[in-house]
Design a binder for these strands. Sequence first.
DNA 1: GGTGTTTTGTCATATCGGCGACATTTATCG
DNA 2: CGATAAATGTCGCCGATATGACAAAACACC
Lengths: 231, 231
Amino acid sequence: MDTAEYQHFAWLARSFGRTDYLPLTPSDLGALAEAGEYVDKYPGTHLFKQGDESQAAYVIQRGEVELYRTRPAGRRVVGRVRSGAVIGDIAMFQGEPYVSSAKAITAVRAFRLERSRLIPLLIEHPVIAMRWLVAGLTQLEATQRRVIRLMHRTVREQVAEVLLDEADEYGEVHLSQSSLADLLGASRQSVNEALASFRAIGATETGYRLIQVTDDKALAEIAGHVIVSGD
Amino acid sequence: MDTAEYQHFAWLARSFGRTDYLPLTPSDLGALAEAGEYVDKYPGTHLFKQGDESQAAYVIQRGEVELYRTRPAGRRVVGRVRSGAVIGDIAMFQGEPYVSSAKAITAVRAFRLERSRLIPLLIEHPVIAMRWLVAGLTQLEATQRRVIRLMHRTVREQVAEVLLDEADEYGEVHLSQSSLADLLGASRQSVNEALASFRAIGATETGYRLIQVTDDKALAEIAGHVIVSGD
DNA sequence: GGTGTTTTGTCATATCGGCGACATTTATCG
DNA sequence: CGATAAATGTCGCCGATATGACAAAACACC
């Protein structure tokens, strides 16, 4: 594998965590790169649906994907992931159907890794398996921690938290208040009330399908983050 | 490794999930058995504490362990695990301090696997790494699913759910109502009210530090489990 | 057996947040 | 530009639950 190709798959290496004590070799990367292929998805289309036979895992390279579950009670958004995330791997490894649906929100490019090709490869390249292990556990654990952080907190605190989480590099959150409410399992009205209170103290501005964070320190304080000086 | 020893560590194999397409060989098991040793813990003592340098993972063989986090807001129980559970592995793999404390509730026997000996072993026995990966993801995912199931439900539903979860083979739950409330992040009073309602319909009986489930079907219905005939 | 502690059971009160209703603003599309 | 749809901003009502208080029962220890 030449340098250009190596560069090309560098983002893939980053996706599998930054566990420096287990470096991926070019041969590892090459093998991974050959075990799958790119797929492109238009906004609104699904990478996979809940209940489908889990045949592959996806590494998101570009775009944003929404993960949600459909229950008798209705639709529940369980997460939004961007570049670098690995999705569908849990169900794939267990050999169970996908437990959630993955829908492209924006135009998405992902690297599709099929189980039948991946399993033998991981046996042959244990370092990849290890890194995958660590990355998977890290991601799941981070999600779990976020969920636990959010539990038993007021909607106002939850909104502050999720705004900090979802804001892009300009401090903008491109979500309707309904979607935000969905994400938290709260009502649109309560989210709106929280946003109104942030606006009142000058921490955010609100527009059509847009929330602009102007004072992230204030939001962090509302979210209950412990501010350590010099941290 | 002879048959007796193989038998002896069969429980360890079970702990790493039931992914039948990746069988553990006797040599895998032997290697794993030699990479650690048994530790015994008295009730009330800690296997590890939050913030400690994570040096080892533990496979619980016998007894019950409570996992909890200490936050400025107070103590929060994040789980209770029994025989077969693997704990501390996430932090160990990441090389980060433990994110929670693990305290023995009953007398506990666990198999301690130290990182420095484990990592090289997993590189050498990729099948173990794979099984660990699957088991870890499965466990985390199950926890997460449980948390999501519990979110945004009434305390009554949550109590029904956790009673079914925690009941032993006799349908007994040996927990004080305070502990139960802790586990759910609810108030003791609300839990008590829920239990009173179960008692009224004859689904449970309550005693000192004891709840006896007498009609699990009724509880399942309250918990919102979908009962499919013939399922 | 007596005393202190833990746990259970119950009440009143205050607050949070979901729900319905409705006006207003912004976007979309012909 | 006008009509329609989508999203925002507020209000009032009501149910669920946390909180505080207290009595009664069960247990633990001397």
